[in-house]
Design a protein around this nucleic acid. Structure first.
Length: 216
DNA sequence: CCCTGATTCGC
DNA sequence: GCGAATCAGG
């Protein structure tokens, strides 16, 4: 796949929104690597953005007046404006009730009242999986959702648990790192994969993140 | 280890 | 122009 205008625009927008190169690469899909994104971003001229390995360029050789570049601000040059870095709370793990979520050393599997084993996720389908929203997929990433985990940011390793409701301005996804092998993070796996009680004893409907009355 | 962006360089 | 390889910091 080549760099079409749309893909370049997506790259630009996401890059400027502070998305990482990996996120952009996976959002673009089609085997676009992180390096491809970075390379293209640089070629497009849009670079900047704090790099972990490029903190600053101190320019104080001092004793070289002839080769010294022009002074910048004669008056108060000691405080350059801070870069507009929107520190992205990409993993706002809810403090919550500290769900233990004992990983999965043995396969995560619940036992029903009759003593039968339930299927573990991965063996078939999750019993309760939030349905993805239909429609309402912004064609262009908008700055409104910058910082939030939008649909564009979904990939194989971040939690796809929806936060809020589709259509709401702040609708986004959890975005935390997934519990490996699951589509959700450890905490939300605990919400998604619950042992089902027999139908007779199950009065309240399952806590679907979509559809049902507002959770949280 | 994982992650990040920057740079290089052969294609 | 492109992007894998590589580098280097967190």
């Amino acid at each position: 796949m080549s760099w079409t205008d749309e893909r370049i625009e997506t790259l630009k927008t996401m890059w400027e929104a502070g998305q990482t190169a990996s996120q952009i690469a996976e959002a673009l899909g089609d085997g676009v690597s992180r390096n491809a994104v970075i390379g293209k971003a640089h070629r497009l001229g849009l670079q900047a953005r704090p790099s972990p390995v490029k903190p600053n360029e101190v320019e104080v050789p001092a004793a070289a007046p002839a080769a010294a570049p022009a002074p910048v601000a004669p008056v108060t040059a000691a405080a350059p404006p801070p870069p507009p870095v929107v520190s992205e709370p990409r993993a706002a793990a809810e403090p919550a009730v500290a769900a233990p979520a004992p990983a999965q050393q043995p396969i995560l599997r619940s036992v029903g009242p009759g003593g039968f084993l339930r299927q573990a996720p991965g063996e078939q389908q999750p019993p309760i999986a939030p349905a993805p929203p239909r429609r309402l997929v912004p064609a262009k990433p908008s700055p409104e959702i910058a910082g939030k985990t939008s649909l564009l940011d979904l990939n194989d390793r971040i939690c796809k648990w929806p936060i809020g409701h589709p259509g709401e301005p702040d609708f986004h996804f959890c975005g935390d790192k997934v519990n490996p092998g699951f589509p959700y993070c450890v905490e939300h796996c605990g919400h998604a994969y619950q042992a089902q009680l027999p139908r007779r004893d199950r009065r309240p409907p399952p806590p679907l993140p979509f559809g049902g009355p507002r959770v949280r």
